[in-house]
């Protein structure tokens, strides 16, 4: 049952060392503030799950929080590589990172299967590709009705899902809109879910088919305005594309990455401090 609490409390309560954590967001509503808090609290040996690992996973990996990454597209969208992810895979810095590579179709299906309480997801995929030669989680299953051979992967059941949304009400019911990605599935597949929101409103005012996560599907709701920046929150602020381009230079070099993290994340108390520093230094 959702409790409204600080992000610091929520991460301390639900993100433990060694946990399987899915911080989702398909370009939109990426939980940047929450990832920063996980890094600040010094979590280690996390299995990170995400269809599209981008800047926050680059940060978590570069700061040594992750032991394993399950993913389907790991890059800085429209810009290029995630340099910290690459450094970990190519050179083992700052530590060895095990990777489990999937395609989007597999992960989207696996989250849905997780939400549905199934052990596996079945789909028509990985036809003629090399993924199953390096990823033992990809198997084949024969349809008992038609004989068609289909791909299957284990469902995703994270210990904790972390997402950002536009609104919650005072009781902790959550509303998100725009590109909703796999967030609903990730929350329903997970044992616990932390949701950061732009604001808490008196009453959620949404169409009857809106994407709502009722309070009893969520563990913690934390109010963090601008908590998705430099990703975006539809209706609140736009994607900060210029920052994504700047991240390429920041993360390319180990020292400049660490300096940036020290200044904007490690020495910040709250995401508001990060925002103020970014503003003072002309990033935003």
């Amino acid at each position: 049952m959702a409790e409204i609490m600080s992000l610091k409390e929520a991460v301390a309560a639900f993100v433990k060392d060694g946990a399987t954590v899915a911080m989702e967001g398909f370009t939109h509503l990426i939980p940047h503030a929450a990832a920063h808090e996980v890094i600040r609290q010094g979590r280690r040996d996390l299995t990170l799950v995400r269809m599209t690992p981008d800047i926050i996973y680059d940060q978590l990996i570069g700061m040594g929080c992750a032991a394993k990454l399950i993913f389907s597209w790991g890059g800085n969208p429209g810009v290029g590589s995630l340099h910290r992810l690459r450094d970990a895979v190519e050179n083992g810095w700052p530590g060895k990172l095990e990777i489990v590579e999937h395609a989007h179709a597999a992960m989207a299906n696996a989250y849905e299967a997780g939400a549905a309480g199934l052990p596996l997801a079945v789909f028509r995929g990985y036809l003629g590709t090399d993924h199953e030669t390096v990823n033992p989680d990809i198997k084949r299953i024969e349809c008992p009705f038609t004989g068609e051979v289909l791909a299957c992967v284990p469902s995703i059941r994270p210990d904790v899902a972390v997402i950002h949304a536009q609104q919650a009400d005072k009781r902790g019911n959550v509303l998100l809109w725009g590109i909703t990605g796999v967030q609903k599935e990730a929350v329903l597949a997970a044992k616990n879910a932390i949701v950061t929101v732009e604001e808490v409103v008196e009453e959620i005012d949404a169409a009857m088919n809106a994407t709502i996560l009722p309070r009893w599907t969520v563990s913690a709701v934390c109010v963090v305005p601008r908590g998705a920046h430099p990703s975006y929150a539809h209706g609140y602020y736009k994607r900060h594309n210029a920052f994504y381009k700047r991240w390429d230079e920041i993360a390319r070099d180990r020292d400049s990455f660490r300096e940036w993290m020290d200044r904007y994340v490690m020495s910040a108390e709250l995401f508001d401090d990060t925002w103020s520093k970014l503003k003072a230094d002309g990033y935003v």
Partner: peptide, 9 residues
């Protein structure tokens, strides 16, 4: 290490 397949496969 390239980004991977995303939706392409």
């Amino acid at each position: 290490r390239l980004p991977g397949g995303g939706g392409a496969p």
